[in-house]
Design a protein around this nucleic acid. Structure first.
Ligand SMILES: [Mn+2]
Ligand SMILES: [Mn+2]
Ligand SMILES: [Mn+2]
Ligand SMILES: [Mn+2]
Lengths: 218, 218
DNA sequence: AATTAAATTTAGACAAAACTAAAAATATGT
DNA sequence: ACATATTTTTAGTTTTGTCTAAATTTAATT
């Protein structure tokens, strides 16, 4: 597969939202930042290569084989992201662009060894699960911190309230996107949470918890 | 620069043998495994881009700017090779193909951090020097082990006598290509050498020393 | 010096991956 | 149901990097 073909396969997979839904030409066009006519040409080619099912005017989805390729790419992308953050001091928001290049490097051994070096991580720095070599993984869901059971672990991936005061509050309390959070306990009385965030323990009110998104796998 | 352009620039550099000699179309063609006509097109393009000097029928060499690009690529290639061997358990002879891909990844921070992670190595697993960020490096020379002064350090990169018995001898004594060797002392009487090879000390006869090539930098 | 050989360039073609402009199919609104 | 709007495809170009075949220049040999 060429670099371009690989990026299209990944995009079809992601737009298919986990299960293999039909993806429209325009959706792909927007996601790939190419014109719809270019998409038509490409999906036809992918179809001829046996990695996608394409029906004129009806959209495209991946074949079994196409899904395997997509998962292998996602595995590589996310392992590289872990490497960049854990070993090379990249931050949460710097990794994507580089991983987008690294995911295309062809070497089975490279990825196996990288996986080993990193200690077989289960999730990437954004809280997204890393498929196994066989393509298996638990899917990640995004939930508000107050809806999640005690004991859950995940990554802080967003805010519901994006007002200035709230963001300032987060900054002051050193809560940032990308931080790993574990819910240790919940006070039934007022709904406040005891959490561990980046190896540091703290307590947050229910009002804060209802405005923070956590990405958890399983 | 595109991937192809980068590979041509590197090839021009290497065929120019350290100092910027004129490189023939056919030499490039052979090195790049493309036809001479393709080379003509490419060097003309590189010339228009200001990274090479090209005179019809006379050959091509790099401009200042072209040399900078070449050295940056070589730096990346060799740092990745060190990473593959030191961190990912690749062996000496497995790294080149993968490094050939990795060298094209675009990210300044990636290379700086990789350099730091690896402890600012001076040579790659083949004993070739790694240019600094500014493009400085000492050039490597290949010498027979018996011609090298006491104290020299380098990498075993070849044999002069490639007969069966000699290779068997090396195998039995666990001397292999890619091994790091330091010359500790020399017996004036018979020319035999005390060496450290891969953290292990041993003594080798002059006859062995005259048939092993060492790549040393400086 | 003339002829032959080798190296190099030109001319024309092709596949990949993109584009624009126009045509065709599908969806939407009254 | 019909007209309009949106989506998608077709047709024809472009750029990049390669190729083959033929022409041209340079080198080598008699
Ligand atoms: Mn990519
Ligand atoms: Mn990610
Ligand atoms: Mn390369
Ligand atoms: Mn090397």
């Amino acid at each position: 597969m060429t670099l371009s073909e690989e990026d299209y396969i990944k995009a079809i997979y992601h737009l298919g939202k986990g299960e293999n839904r039909m993806v429209s030409t325009n959706a792909l066009s927007e996601s790939m930042e190419t014109k719809p006519s270019s998409v038509t040409d490409m999906v036809r080619k992918l179809s001829e290569k046996g990695v996608a099912h394409y029906k004129k005017y009806k959209g495209v989805c991946l074949t079994e084989n196409g899904q395997k390729i997509a998962l292998a790419l996602i595995r590589k992308h996310r392992l590289w992201e872990v490497f960049l953050v854990d070993s090379l001091n990249f931050s949460w928001d710097e990794v994507h662009e580089v991983a987008e290049q690294l995911e295309h490097i062809k070497s089975e051994k490279l990825i196996d060894e990288l996986d080993k070096l990193l200690g077989y991580p289960q999730v990437d720095p954004h809280g997204d699960p890393i498929p196994s070599k066989k393509g298996e993984f638990k899917k990640a869901i995004k939930k508000l911190l107050n809806e999640v059971p005690v004991g859950s672990r995940g990554i802080c991936v967003g805010v519901k309230d994006s007002s200035g005061p709230f963001l300032k509050f987060l900054d002051k309390n050193k809560i940032a996107l990308g931080d790993a959070i574990t819910v240790l306990d919940k006070e039934e009385f007022d709904g406040s949470l005891h959490i561990k965030i980046k190896d540091r323990k703290m307590q947050i009110s229910d009002q804060i918890a209802t405005n923070l998104y956590l990405k958890i796998t399983e």
